[in-house]
């Protein structure tokens, strides 16, 4: 690791000010990606600004029609949340199959979606549920937030403060774990909204990161059941292929995971 300056601000404004002052500053929101690449000397931020101690960024709130999870809330806290379990149990399930206990104690939802790893779990939930990403500057619709591999709509220095999930009629998440990394080899989040719309997002499968799956959405909109997907074909175009899964295998997983997610959603 190259030398860096570590900061632990107590407010979002202070964090943003530190970022603006730093030459090549980075926010730390869990650190499962940033710290390993720093240790490998593949990243050398001048300043590391830890968002984990900002009280305003931690907590889970329920309103009538939305579950709001503040950005620096850890996965562990989401797992413990009675509100989350009641409002959107699929999110709690997703959290329970994310990483391992050490990761869940330290990792945060904001860190996950800001990083937008193409195999991360939470982007699938944000996209499928049509969540709103709130930042220190604005609100961004989930559909417009993810911009391809490790890329988002966030501007330089912009800080996610919370993610607001509309409470769906039904939702489910099913994930095939990558054998080595335990990220999603493919994970699919299915949602039936209270308005009767169907939204499906897949992670781990596409070369462009998390994506909607229109073929599955159409079939489920016509018939919300696992069996409705039996004859759906997922194109391999644009899907990832590596030593752990061909694109044909991932296309199959999108369908199979969608079916299992629907079954789990009930």
């Amino acid at each position: 690791m190259y030398e860096t300056t570590y900061h632990r601000p107590s407010s979002v404004d202070e964090a943003a000010a530190l970022f603006a002052k730093g030459k090549e500053a980075k926010y730390l929101a869990g650190g499962h990606t940033l710290l390993p690449v720093m240790k490998q000397r593949l990243a050398s931020p001048s300043d590391v600004i830890d968002l984990g101690k900002i009280k305003d960024l931690v907590g889970i709130e329920m309103s009538g029609d939305a579950l709001t999870i503040k950005a620096a809330t850890t996965y562990f806290d989401i797992l413990q949340s009675a509100d989350a379990k009641k409002a959107i149990p699929a999110i709690v399930h997703l959290t329970s199959v994310l990483g391992d206990p050490q990761v869940r104690y330290r990792g945060t939802i904001g860190g996950s979606i800001a990083n937008n790893d193409p195999a991360a779990d939470f982007p699938a939930a944000v996209l499928a549920l049509g969540a709103t990403v709130k930042t220190n500057k604005r609100s961004i619709a989930g559909d417009g937030f993810f911009k391809g591999l490790f890329s988002t709509a966030l501007e330089d220095g912009e800080i996610i403060t919370a993610i607001s999930f509309p409470i769906p009629a039904r939702a489910g998440y099913s994930k095939m774990r990558h054998p080595a990394s335990r990220f999603a080899l493919t994970g699919v989040f299915v949602v039936k909204t209270k308005a009767g719309d169907v939204r499906v997002a897949a992670t781990g499968a596409s070369q462009n990161g998390v994506m909607r799956v229109p073929a599955v959405e159409a079939a489920l909109k016509a018939n919300w059941s696992a069996g409705a997907l039996d004859n759906v074909t997922i194109s391999t175009d644009g899907l990832l292929a590596d030593i752990h899964g061909s694109s044909a295998y991932r296309a199959n997983l999108i369908k199979v995971m969608a079916q299992r997610a629907v079954t789990a959603a009930g």
Partner: peptide, 11 residues
């Protein structure tokens, strides 16, 4: 015999 390989062996 990774899941990918077994799936391809089956299908």
């Amino acid at each position: 015999a990774s899941p990918d390989r077994v799936w391809h062996a089956i299908h």
